[in-house]
């Protein structure tokens, strides 16, 4: 990959920020879908019950810890792979 000069880097940075925003929205809506589908199953009331609330909070926390751990391992593997290519 050819390196980018200052001006190119600035332009690229803008693209990165746009993508991060999009990625965050994607993450958010995926997490809502996941925790809703795994935790909410009682539709006799329109309020989330305690069991559902606890489940949702654990579901979200677990997911964030999961993606954090995947991120760490991902970086390690990525570094290893780049090393082996050189």
């Amino acid at each position: 990959m050819e390196s980018l000069n200052n001006k190119e880097q600035q332009e690229f940075q803008k693209i990165v920020e746009q993508k991060q925003m999009k990625d965050f929205m994607r993450l958010y809506s995926n997490l809502v879908e996941k925790c809703f589908s795994d935790c909410v199953e009682d539709f006799t009331s329109s309020k989330l019950n305690n069991r559902e609330l606890t489940c949702i909070s654990k579901c979200a926390e677990k997911f964030l810890k999961h993606s954090e751990r995947v991120g760490k391992r991902f970086q390690e593997q990525n570094a290893l792979m780049n090393q082996n290519l050189r």
């Binding site: 795994d38 654990k58 677990k62 999961h66 993606s67």
Partner: peptide, 15 residues
């Protein structure tokens, strides 16, 4: 990896 590794019970918030 979430599909393959995370237990659906959500017994705790941590891993």
């Amino acid at each position: 990896c979430h599909k393959k590794c995370i237990e659906l019970k959500y017994a705790e918030g941590g891993l």
